[in-house]
Design a protein around this nucleic acid. Structure first.
Lengths: 346, 346
DNA sequence: TTGAAAGCGATACCAT
DNA sequence: ATGGTATCGCTTTCAA
């Protein structure tokens, strides 16, 4: 493993000169320049980012803190990755999975970011209180943080999310256009912040259209992918009571459960009932029928998060709160309302 | 951002002493030890891994090279992540997506690994020829490589894969036990190495059971998730010709296509025909019916890959080729053969 | 235009 | 048990 010193010796020059050439300074005459580059090439020199970092005090590495689960995290990371690469940055992955069991896991990840002198941190959807640990650790070292896909906003750090409120409203609008009036929501427990926001979007959309709506028209079920007996009872009861023409779900997993229950209850989707999901996860392509869903721009969210982080790294102190537009993917789980003709007549 | 020197000054000690304490050397008396630790705590000292790395010449970072796509890559990374964390290592992500367009993308990733002085590299499923670039770059710097999920084995680096050959055979065995005899395969193009292996597994399983089989009973379709007209024709024709009681697919995406075609052709799964996939991707939970599939142990593969890499980092020169067992997940796309009774009688 | 020397923050060896 | 000093590979003045 050759160093600049080796090149210098080979080329009969001083080591700092080699450094200058290799960093593209123009104060070096073409002749020496050429000699240095040739020897570097010949020896197969590879610059040592570590040594550079220790001197400059800066690394071109950002930390990615957050669980790896969830299906969509890969898209977020992909988005970050592309933006990173374009700016010559690298990602160090700090997976934090067992936040519930180990409350200090996050603090540890943050400390590791500091120890590795990352230039900044992108952090995904963490529980409220956990963030304080993060903040305490990173703020002290002036390492900027950007939150991505985090339901709650803070005035001390930037954040990138999808505009779920608008997204749900778009979904409802689509259902309305299809002639649906009896629209209900099935969603994850409302104490989850994202679920609450999407519920509010649903309520607002309905009210703005002058349709009757109440919290009773929202059914909360587990976030787990598996359909429990509890879920089944609750959902079946809810659907029987409300006899909705359409269901706008708070998430894709929930939508999958709805689809499954419909199948069991012999409710034909979309003929008897339309279903819309939320997220745009891979598997919604493969449900039966393929799910109409509000797609969150995960990739763009990742890219935007990096863009903001880079600004902060470069000294921008402003706090941003970016909401990215969702887009409705229309597939086969939605159709025109049966009662449409009637409604159009009145 | 305080350094050891700062602590030393504060505590009235020398900086090397501080280093010793902070690294847990026992040659330091309790009194000084305490003083150092207290000052470090008070100042909020955080060790500088960069500085440490430059001195020791080693980093506790490994590079992960490979595309982020594919659905299962997240599981592999998760597996690596857990093993990493347990050994105090970190992952630097070097996504290489556009290998086809940019043949040097891989070389660049490798060079970056060198520049960052990673301790080792785990690399995912790359085209044959591309590997040479990787090898040339990393071997020169004595950075060990472990291949994960790569169909072809090399004598110059270790590799971890799932035992697809055995996996397919297990799938076929299950179908046989269900009474099926007329079993065919639908798979990705056979010039893809993984497809070839799985095809061979299918052929072997059939032959070992004394059942008639030939390459004609294998149907190749595109790997793309979208079902093209071409695929449709081919598949429909294939199914009509062979009238199989069961299909063992070379991959989950292919299985999804088969399911969809069956739906269009009004072939009831599993009543008229059983279908088995290969991989165990998320979305196979949600197809209709949920797919019986041969699950590859992606997470374990990642963990194992790191374990091997760590050995190499620690000087082990031996080349390993590890095949991890798959496991059959039985869901609803498979059932007993209709002709079962008949067969049992004879 | 180039070289000499200092220093980044740590480790390691040799003294004391 | 502690301190001195050299060193890692590089960047960065400052002279020459």
């Amino acid at each position: 493993m050759f160093t600049m010193k080796d090149i210098a010796k080979e080329a009969g020059l001083s080591q700092p000169t080699v450094s200058l050439v290799l960093n593209g300074h123009y104060s070096i005459c073409a002749e020496t320049r050429k000699r240095v580059l040739e020897t570097a090439e010949r020896l197969g020199y590879r610059r040592n980012e570590i040594a550079r970092a220790i001197k400059t005090g800066k690394t071109n590495v950002i930390g990615i803190i957050g669980g790896l689960q969830g299906g969509y995290s890969l898209d977020i990371i992909t988005g970050i990755a592309e933006a990173c690469a374009a700016s010559g940055y690298f990602m160090k992955l700090l997976p934090v999975n067992n936040l519930e069991n180990d409350p200090d896991a996050l603090g540890q990840a943050a400390r590791q970011c500091v120890e590795h002198r990352v230039a900044g941190v992108i952090c995904r959807s963490l529980k409220e209180h956990a963030l304080d640990t993060l903040r305490a650790e990173l703020d002290a070292m002036h390492i900027p943080i950007v939150l991505v896909d985090s339901s709650s906003h803070h005035d001390w750090c930037s954040r990138v999310v999808s505009d779920d409120f608008a997204g749900i409203k778009e979904g409802v609008a689509f259902l309305l256009k299809q002639g649906h009036r009896k629209i209900v929501q099935v969603t994850s427990p409302l104490n989850l912040e994202y679920a609450r926001i999407r519920a509010d979007g649903y309520l607002a959309a309905m009210r703005e259209s002058g349709l009757p709506v109440s919290e009773d028209m929202i059914c909360e079920i587990d976030t787990m992918l598996e359909l429990s007996d509890n879920d089944k009872h609750k959902l079946a009861g809810f659907l029987k009571t409300n006899k909705p023409g359409a269901v706008i779900c708070g998430s894709d997993p929930v939508a999958m459960k709805v689809l499954r229950i419909c199948h069991e209850m012999k409710i034909a989707v979309p003929d008897d009932m339309s279903v819309i999901g939320f997220a745009g996860l891979d598997y919604t392509n493969f449900s039966s029928p393929p799910l109409t869903t509000v797609e969150q721009p995960f990739c763009e969210m990742g890219a935007k998060a990096f863009e903001l982080l880079l600004r902060h790294i470069n000294g921008d102190q402003k706090i941003y709160d970016v909401k990215l537009k969702t887009s409705l993917i229309i597939r086969d789980s939605t159709g025109k309302a049966k009662e449409k003709m009637v409604l159009l007549e009145k």
